[in-house]
Amino acid sequence: MVIQLIVNGLAMGFIYALAALGVVMLYNALGIVNFAQGEFATLGAFIAYSLIAEMGVPYPLGFVVTVMIVAAAGVLFERIVYRPLRHKHFLTVIVSTIGVMIFFREFERIVWKPIPRFFPDIFEGRLITIGNVVIVPQHVFIIGVALVLMVSLYLFLNKTSVGAKMRATAQDQETASLMGVDVEKMIVLTFVISACLGAIAGVLFAPIFFITIDMGGTVGLTAFCASIIGGFGSIPGAICGALLLGLVEVFGAAYVSSVYKPAVAFMLMIAFLMFRPRGIFGEKVSVKV
């Protein structure tokens, strides 16, 4: 039982972690928090549903095409929403993001209708049984994909020249542009990666629950809570925070009550902000004087 719950919690945690990575990368690069981040996940789940379940595209191909479409949405987001808002007041940015969220949700409502969709299980309901431990293969799949992605992202950021340029942009845009980095391009790339991470989280998440219009919103906000718990701006922190939340949610639902599951992330985050604003890792977040 406990092992099952751990696997389940880790799977959820890794989904949050992917979304949280998107949030943190965007924040580090641009100093903005995209509350619409989770919408990329919903969009990804719906597109994958149409491609794989409705049109019969093979899963791996459907997966890749979905991520590419959502990446394009990320580019559009940068062009249409983020660019005109650069250097605008923080509240204006927040309200604009709300507009984006409404648009995404309504777009999905129009295209996919407000019916919860059930994503087919690629493992066709098979379960892994080891002794008396029963594990859902999708959970293992999620953990595997997420780990591979994280390692590749780490290698990309730290071992490639494009990655170095992205990190330079995140640290100091002016200096980076003086050193000949095409900052604009790096910003677009950051949006693309962030959207892709969201989409992947969405596709991985889709078979676990129904796909609904609110699905991504919850994932996105939980991811944001996770990154605060981890210490905002810290990538290892975001991952740890996300795993912690995944586990706490699953164990809380199993042993305490599932009624308040959606609030667990918020309660934990508020507790951290009040008593340990630095999070597990990372910077202090109190109001700057």
Binding site: V33, F35, F90, I94, L221, F224, C225, I228, F232, V259, Y260, P262, A263, A265, F266, M267, M269, I270, L273, M274, P277, V285, S286, V287
Partner: peptide, 22 residues
């Protein structure tokens, strides 16, 4: 709001409203 601002405050208020709803 005395301790945190901006995005942090935004997420705290979102959390508050979710808890109230639940």
């Amino acid at each position: 709001s005395l301790k945190v601002g901006r995005y942090y405050l935004a997420i705290v208020t979102i959390g508050f409203s979710e808890i109230v709803r639940l």
